[in-house]
Measured scan of single mutants.
Amino acid sequence: LVRYRTISKIPQITLNFVDLKGDPFLASPTSDREIIAPKIKERTHNVTEKVTQVLSLGADVLPEYKLQAPRIHRWTILHYSPFKAVWDWLILLLVIYTAVFTPYSAAFLLKETEEGPPATECGYACQPLAVVDLIVDIMFIVDILINFRTTYVNANEEVVSHPGRIAVHYFKGWFLIDMVAAIPFDLLIFGSGSEELIGLLKTARLLRLVRVARKLDRYSEYGAAVLFLLMCTFALIAHWLACIWYAIGNMEQPHMDSRIGWLHNLGDQIGKPYNSSGLGGPSIKDKYVTALYFTFSSLTSVGFGNVSPNTNSEKIFSICVMLIGSLMYASIFGNVSAIIQRLYSGTARYHTQMLRVREFIRFHQIPNPLRQRLEEYFQHAWSYTNGIDMNAVLKGFPECLQADICLHLNRSLLQHCKPFRGATKGCLRALAMKFKTTHAPPGDTLVHAGDLLTALYFISRGSIEILRGDVVVAILGKNDIFGEPLNLYARPGKSNGDVRALTYCDLHKIHR
């Protein structure tokens, strides 16, 4: 019993810090008490220290592992850092350059016999395009090294910054494609005289377009951006097909006994025919423009016929181009109408809503002055909100995010209106959640004399007048207030005048 009563005193000691020596009952000389009392004092002292730490809000209350900052290894790049964003855009520009100039170089340097010394005699450094290609190869190699040090988000939505895990993730992902696209074939085969082989191998750079397509997928929600990307894709495919079309004609031209190829026909049409040795002929500019003209006309199913396939190889390629053109029509131009419709969806919704308003007016036989006010209010409210119901949009977000959005939407009023000066951010967040926005066209009466005042109004834009009878008592403008002081009276009061809008007004109100 003594032991039980001794232990039962522990909660009292913990909360009230009572010393055991003052209790005459606990001072009985028993061996059990002498053993338990020192333990009680020690526990009391420890609990006292913990309570003191909690009340003082000291940093040592938290466990040590929670006080440590997340460790980022040296030379690790955050995937959302500004440097990584700028670097990704730079790589994107280099990939676009590669997609345009690599097929052009591979096709127009394929057994090209233009006048001038061969590239091997001039030297590697004197070729501007080769120098640019070398810079692109170096940048792609540097990009691989950067990807080995860039964080990523795993399946659990955690940012991984450990170098080993980053390397394994990159090896399992895009490393092989990036490595093949970054191989400097110019340096590996330079001086061997195989410019045709170098041009063909350099087309491996186009593998990076797969990554670019995935990154550009984030802009699919913007109709104008999608339309622009589709047109660029169409032009890029036409450019690639033009390079292939020229390569076919250029390879067949020296081996044909009869002059029936499209390059021969082009030379005869523009007065620059090929001679018996295969030299001469149109310039590279004429060849490229004509090839691009043929691919565009074939892809769009126009086909004027002034550039036509004559050999079997050219006919087979033309059939493939027609098939590609039909697929592009289905996948690209078939979506253009939907994209344009999405661009004008706001206008369509406006006309639909206006039609419903006019049908309501016609069905209920609203008189002319009231009908005009109804239409003007709808037009003004639509121009202010673009038909978007803010309350319906915010309803799907958590309250903390709703408060931040409301604070942002009402920031101008909260910053410049005098009653809100000096208020804490928590108070402003709470008030912003209570605001209701209303609009009024010129001549609209917001409050009639004798109406119950259940709200306090803040003028965000425009001006109003307060009338008693036919006498203008006051004219209020931006950041002015009218209405009933909230919670100042037990019952809502009545208006002693009319409140009429002089201009288009936007008002925020808080109800009782």
Rank of each mutant, 00 (worst) to 15 (best):
K66M: 10
Q68C: 01
I72A: 14
H73Y: 10
W75Y: 06
I77M: 06
L78E: 09
F83A: 11
W87C: 01
W87H: 01
L90Q: 01
L92R: 02
L94V: 10
T98P: 01
T102C: 01
F108K: 02
E112W: 13
T113Q: 12
E114H: 15
P117R: 14
T120P: 15
E121T: 14
C122V: 01
G123D: 04
G123K: 07
Y124N: 04
C126T: 01
Q127I: 01
P128G: 05
P128I: 14
V131H: 01
I141S: 05
V142H: 01
L145P: 01
I146R: 01
T150H: 01
N154W: 03
N156C: 11
V159I: 10
V159M: 01
V160D: 08
H162E: 09
H162Q: 10
A167L: 05
A167K: 01
V168T: 09
H169M: 06
H169I: 04
H169G: 04
W174A: 04
D178V: 01
I183P: 01
F185G: 06
I189S: 13
L197C: 11
L201V: 05
K202W: 01
R211Y: 01
V212I: 04
R214V: 05
L216I: 14
L216R: 04
Y222L: 04
G223V: 04
L227F: 13
L227W: 01
F228G: 11
L229P: 11
T233L: 14
I237Q: 01
C243W: 01
I248F: 01
M251Q: 03
I260E: 03
I260F: 12
W262L: 01
G267V: 03
D268A: 09
G271N: 03
L279K: 15
Y288R: 01
L292D: 01
S298W: 01
S298R: 03
S298I: 15
T300H: 08
V302N: 06
M322S: 02
L327A: 03
A338N: 03
I340T: 05
Q341C: 05
Y344I: 01
Y344E: 05
S345V: 11
G346S: 10
A348N: 03
T352C: 09
T352F: 11
L355F: 15
R358T: 05
R358F: 01
E359A: 05
F363E: 01
I366K: 01
P367G: 06
P367C: 05
R371K: 14
E375H: 14
H380E: 07
A381L: 12
A381K: 10
N386A: 07
N386C: 10
V393E: 03
G396T: 13
G396H: 06
A403T: 05
L409M: 08
L414H: 01
F435S: 02
H448T: 10
